[in-house]
Design a protein around this nucleic acid. Structure first.
Length: 107
DNA sequence: ACGTTGACCTATA
DNA sequence: GTATAGGCCAACG
């Protein structure tokens, strides 16, 4: 596995419970910059990884759960977030700015 | 080998 | 405020 994916999974695992981040934030932190789609691909392959990756804490820039359909079942993502104290309405995180966790600030 | 797709983002109108 | 366009690059058929 290339270093890129390895670093993506590493950062995702560092997300504190009850907090969320965005693909773009991870991409910029890793230096890939505009190629934030690769982060999405990394998440798509995350379930192959031996170590568990909390992909439900990664959403798009608007705080919308665009990737929930890749979960089994799709409602699992929303339930996991609500289980951590995050309110989700219509596949969108309420007060997203409040729960947002920026890798730049912590790392 | 080539065209299309995609868990995105930024910019422009 | 929404709508559309372009760019990004790996994986799939």
């Amino acid at each position: 596995m290339s270093d890129f994916y390895q670093r993506v999974y590493e950062v995702v695992r560092l997300i504190p419970p009850g907090r969320v981040t965005s693909y773009g934030a991870i991409a910029r932190y890793l230096g890939t910059g505009r190629s934030s789609r690769m982060v999405g691909w990394a998440m798509n392959l995350s379930h192959h990884q031996p170590e568990y990756v909390p992909a439900h804490r990664v959403v798009n820039r608007n705080g919308l759960l665009t990737g929930k359909i890749h979960f089994t079942p799709p409602s699992a993502m929303q339930e996991l977030l609500e289980n951590e104290g995050i309110t989700v309405t219509d596949d969108q995180i309420v007060n997203f700015n409040q729960y947002f966790w920026n890798p730049m600030d912590e790392l």
